[in-house]
């Protein structure tokens, strides 16, 4: 479905992110993180509105701690934008929608 957010696991990460024709914004999050929950609806809106420009995916750091380690995530939410499978931009901490869109502007 266009604009749907996929959950990535250690098994699916490389295929989903590496093979994507569009940039993928990956949200590293966890159930116990308040600011992560607060930006979740914003990311859903962006995923729906920007379908075709970028994709949004999530990594639950509780379930995929190796992915968090691999990308040196030590604070959540951390958002990493992968362009052609390579980390191109990193944003640490929750932000409002206008700020997020501004940070992502060059990819939209």
């Amino acid at each position: 479905m266009a604009g749907a957010i996929v959950n990535l696991s250690e098994a699916t990460f490389d295929e989903e992110v590496g093979a994507s024709s569009e940039p993928v914004l990956v949200d590293f999050w966890a159930e116990w993180c308040g600011p992560c929950k607060m930006i979740a609806p914003i990311l859903e809106e962006i995923a729906a509105e920007q379908a075709g420009s970028i994709r949004i995916a999530k990594v639950n750091v509780d379930e995929a701690p190796d992915l968090a380690r691999r990308f040196e995530v030590m604070s959540i939410p951390t958002l990493i934008l992968f362009d052609n499978g390579v980390p191109a931009k990193r944003m640490v901490g929750a932000k409002g929608k206008p700020q997020l869109l501004e940070e992502l502007a060059e990819y939209l």
């Binding site: 966890a30 116990w32 993180c33 308040g34 600011p35 992560c36 750091v61 509780d62 968090a68 040196e72 995530v73 030590m74 604070s75 959540i76 939410p77 951390t78 640490v92 901490g93």
Partner: peptide, 16 residues
């Protein structure tokens, strides 16, 4: 160093 070991949110980042 914020997000690289320096944190403003213990409940978010203690896990790491």
């Amino acid at each position: 160093l914020i997000g690289h070991g320096l944190s403003t949110c213990a409940t978010c980042d203690g896990f790491f």
